[in-house]
Design a protein around this nucleic acid. Structure first.
Length: 320
DNA sequence: AACTTTCCCAACCGCCTGGTA
DNA sequence: CTACCAGGCGGTTGGGAAAGT
């Protein structure tokens, strides 16, 4: 048996708010406040609206100091950083952006920022035009963004939020792949939605000593490993460990595609579906949400503190 | 100009959580 | 301890606007 609805749906108005409704709600709340009861409020002021609808309208549109309009670069970076660190905690993200609502940020992320970050803006469609120059230029734009410190940090923070498998995937997909072969006794088994063997092994070898399974986790940045060889935590670490040198990136096709595969593949792993589609045919993610629960708000605060300090002053003496 | 496709965002839906009786 | 309720939250939808053909 389902939960009882919060209001009588047959007798409430739905859809866009009229200016008159807005005025009624606004003036009442400005004069008397919400009264601590959103459900009762519409009856009190003669609005045929659900209490939840009133609350949403007030919070997202009518309340003072709401900022509408385009987002700044700074706001973009904050959203990217926090999203990649804590996931879709829109209310927490909104709390870091005065005047922005969680709904605004969620819409902005889903419709634009995600595409911008993944390099999937509408000009994607021009990729098929002769010469592929537009594609090349667009990818270059995206990668210029990635090379910017704040967005680099965003990318690196995949490892702060997502389970260690993702860190290993980023640091050393080939090695992880080989370990899985041993575990599964199946040399063809590949859990990733792309071919990890395409990653250049000579670049991976230098990272292999940083074995994720022996890493412990930084107390200030939960789920963020650091290593026995004293490297410690580095928010830019993942880019240091990227399968190719980001600083020496020459935009050749192989590396561009590798970048696409890693970013796109990671997104698929995380969300269990193609991020370009909102269709219902999403596949199941192989990440067990119970085994890898989202970090608590406390963990988020810890992460944030760590970010503000940029780098912890002390590193642990040994693994736990 | 007409039609189709894609984008954008306000609003809705339903689950989860915390307070309280 | 349990049940109920309201508030809060994140995912999703619907429709108008803009862009593309």
């Amino acid at each position: 048996m389902g939960r009882a609805p919060c209001c009588d749906k047959a007798n409430v108005k739905r859809g866009p708010w009229s200016p008159e409704e807005d005025a009624k709600l606004k003036s009442h709340i400005e004069e008397h406040g919400t009264g601590g009861n959103w459900i009762a409020l519409p009856h009190k002021i003669g609005l045929k609206r659900c209490g939840k609808s009133c609350r949403l309208r007030w919070l997202n549109y009518l309340r003072p100091n709401i900022k509408h309009g385009s987002f700044s670069e700074e706001e973009d970076h904050i959203i990217c950083t926090l999203y990649l660190n804590i996931g879709s905690r829109w209310s927490i993200i909104a709390s870091q952006l005065p005047g922005r609502t969680d709904n605004d940020i969620k819409n902005y992320w889903n419709t634009r920022l995600k595409k911008k970050l993944m390099g999937m803006q509408r000009k994607d469609q021009q990729f098929s035009k002769p010469g592929g120059l537009v594609k090349q230029e667009m990818k270059r734009d995206v990668l210029e963004d990635v090379k910017a410190p704040s967005l680099c940090m965003s990318m690196n923070l995949y490892q702060s939020y997502w389970p260690s498998e993702f860190s290993l995937l980023l640091t050393n997909p080939n090695q992880h792949h080989q370990e899985l072969h041993v575990k599964t006794q199946d040399p063809t088994f590949n859990p990733y939605p792309f071919d990890t063997t395409s990653i250049q092994p000579e670049l991976l070898d230098q990272n292999s000593k940083k074995h994720i399974s022996t890493a412990s986790y930084h107390p200030q940045l939960p789920n963020t490993p650091y290593f026995a060889n004293g490297d410690g935590i580095n928010l830019f670490q993942e880019f240091n460990n990227f399968p190719f040198e980001i600083n020496e990136f020459d935009y050749n096709t192989t590396q561009l595609d590798q970048f696409d595969e890693l970013v796109g593949g990671l997104d698929n792993l995380i969300h269990g579906s193609n991020c370009t589609s909102s269709s219902a045919e999403s596949t199941t993610s192989w990440v067990d949400p119970l085994a890898h629960p989202r970090p608590s708000p406390m963990a988020y605060e810890d992460c944030r503190r760590g970010l503000l300090q940029n780098r912890p002053s002390e590193q642990p003496s040994q693994f736990q």
